[in-house]
Design a protein around this nucleic acid. Sequence first.
DNA 1: ATGCGGACCTGTTAGC
DNA 2: TGCTAACAGGTCCGCA
Length: 271
Amino acid sequence: MPELPEVETTRAGIAPQITGRRVSKVIVRDRRLRWPVPPALARELPGQRVHEVTRRAKYLLLKADTGSVILHLGMSGSVRILTRSLAPLPHDHIDIRFGRAAILRFNDPRRFGCVLWTRRDPFSHPLLADLGPEPLSADFAGEKLYESSRGRKVAIKNFIMNAQVVVGVGNIYASEALYLAGIHPRRPAGRISLARFNELAAQVQRVLRAAIRAGGTTLRDFTDSDGLPGYFSQSLKVYGRTGLPCKRCGEAIRQEVIGQRSTFFCPHCQR
DNA sequence: ATGCGGACCTGTTAGC
DNA sequence: TGCTAACAGGTCCGCA
């Protein structure tokens, strides 16, 4: 579920419900996530206020009085806000309770996600310290991609999915952005011109923004069980369209494995 | 430094 | 219909 648009939609959904509220209790039902949930979370967070809910890459950051919660949804994670007590379902691993007002409930079947606690600046946490630029920031442009790609032989698909290069481009939107920019996913990153990188950067922004808009519409009230904007799938040009005609030229969309992930592209429109 | 493959998990779907 | 295998939106880590 969670690519950057889903994470951003989640952030926007939960922020108004917990910002400024005081945590009353943290319940950890299963601490076996990607990294074990630190005991300090349940020990230190209760009694503190959440001051803001931000996002860096696909990490959600809950800034509290003496530290921050760092939360990642992995492949299958979701959070939702309950406004009344509900019996936990399978994989409801963590509750962060805000008195009677709200419960933030973290669910993650595959447990690739994480919920961590740091007393330091979360941006200096090892998981966040080396991350590349945010694709939706105003200063994100093709130049950065172009410069960091010189001499690199890695396929462009893998390159733009590398979080040290640019964050937030997951498997779906990597295929989509490359299609929109007309770039073959296997093309070596170092053999792409500045002009084409400018186009790619623009299309990355465009597709992510469009998906956020679609997600935002679907999940307006956030008591829904999973943060799945099932909606944007209608707008996908290549992802999941193996064998179907390209919407531009009619050629059959190809599916190949690149970097161990399924990749979708039009062999005619992408070079 | 770079690039590749494996690892972590469970649930759902595709195929025989 | 039922069993098994393949696959799934992420990303860290170790090795060559």
